[in-house]
Simulated scan of single mutants.
Amino acid sequence: MSEPRTTTPTLDKDPGTTPPAPADGSGRFWSARRVPAAVVAVLLLAAAGLLLYDIAAVRAHRPAMHWRRALARQLAERPLDDVWVLAGAAVTVVLGLWLIALAVTPGLRGLLPMRRPHPDVRAALRRDAAALLLRDRALDVTGVRSVRVRMRRKRAEVRVVSHFRDLDEVGADLYTALTEAIQQLGLPRPPTLSVQVTRPGRKG
């Protein structure tokens, strides 16, 4: 058994340098955004219905609802630099930007698009499933005691605790095994692999 080391070797390379199978990617999967869409639709429907009822009541020679008279009076009397006016404008802008962001971003960040062997086939791999596969492959390497994997869209961070063997040897074996595992995931753009190996009791 080798003596405890004072250094922490880190391998940070891009397995994407190995040419993947010739196939296009599936592209990001778009979220349906059902909850935000339902909330916005309900709010707009309620506001439109209430305003339509009030307008119909005024046309029928009945007084306008109290809230609309109070709102019209407040808008006429309050200056533009009033705190409440500025606060309402800020909230409206934030909500508008949030809705725009939901409309132009795909969402579903937990899905990794896979290579597309046929134009009519689209597939994706969950990040937690990819992380579990890399963890299992890392545990198969001799000398590995525990593994933590953090899978992102463009980077796979693997933190390993080794209780015997030379750290450099363990790191080299891990890089080889995990590079092969990443290529087998079927991703069009394999993430950058970062491998860090430490001894028990050390933080890396």
Results as ranks from 00 to 15, higher is better:
Ala103Lys: 04
Arg145Trp: 07
Pro191Ala: 11
Val93Asp: 08
Arg122Glu: 15
Thr8Met: 13
Val149Ala: 06
Met114Ile: 10
Arg127Val: 02
Ser26Trp: 07
Thr17Phe: 10
Ala32Ser: 05
Ala123Ser: 11
Ala23Asn: 04
Leu132Ala: 03
Val170Asn: 02
Ala70Glu: 03
Ala37Lys: 15
Leu111Met: 07
Ala72Tyr: 05
Gly96Asp: 00
Gln196Thr: 10
Pro4Ala: 00
Glu157Pro: 00
Val35Thr: 15
Arg126Gln: 09
Leu11Glu: 07
Ala38Asn: 10
Pro119Thr: 01
Ala131Gln: 01
Val195Ile: 14
Met114Arg: 01
Glu157Asn: 01
Leu167Ile: 03
Ser146Val: 09
Glu3Cys: 03
Arg189Asn: 07
Thr92Met: 08
Val91Asp: 11
Thr142Met: 11
Arg62Asn: 13
Asp136Cys: 04
Thr105Trp: 15
Gly16Ala: 10
Arg115Lys: 00
Ala23Tyr: 07
Ala181Asn: 02
Val147Cys: 10
Arg137Asp: 14
Asp136Tyr: 03
Pro188His: 04
Leu44Asn: 11
Arg116Lys: 08
Leu174Glu: 01
Ala123Phe: 00
Pro9Val: 12
Val160Cys: 11
Tyr53Trp: 12
Leu133Phe: 06
Val85Leu: 05
Pro190Gln: 14
Pro79Cys: 12
Leu185Tyr: 11
Gly49Lys: 08
Leu102Lys: 07
Ala177Lys: 08
Ala37Phe: 13
Asp140Asn: 10
Pro188Glu: 04
Glu3Gly: 04
Arg159Tyr: 15
Asp140Arg: 04
Leu134Pro: 02
His163Gly: 10
Ala130Lys: 04
Arg34Pro: 01
Leu45Cys: 14
Leu125Gly: 00
Trp30Asp: 15
Ala76Asn: 06
Val161His: 03
Asp54Ile: 12
Val197Asn: 03
Arg28His: 00
Leu97Pro: 03
Leu71His: 12
Arg69Val: 01
His118Asp: 00
Asp140Pro: 05
Leu50Arg: 02
Pro19Lys: 02
Arg62Ser: 08
Val149Tyr: 11
Phe164His: 06
Ser2Glu: 15
Asp82Val: 02
Arg115His: 06
Ser194Pro: 02
Pro79Arg: 08
Ala41Trp: 10
Val147Met: 12
Tyr175Pro: 10
Ala130His: 07
Thr105Asp: 14
Glu3His: 03
Pro117Lys: 06
Ala64His: 12
Thr7Glu: 02
Gly107Arg: 01
Gly96Leu: 15
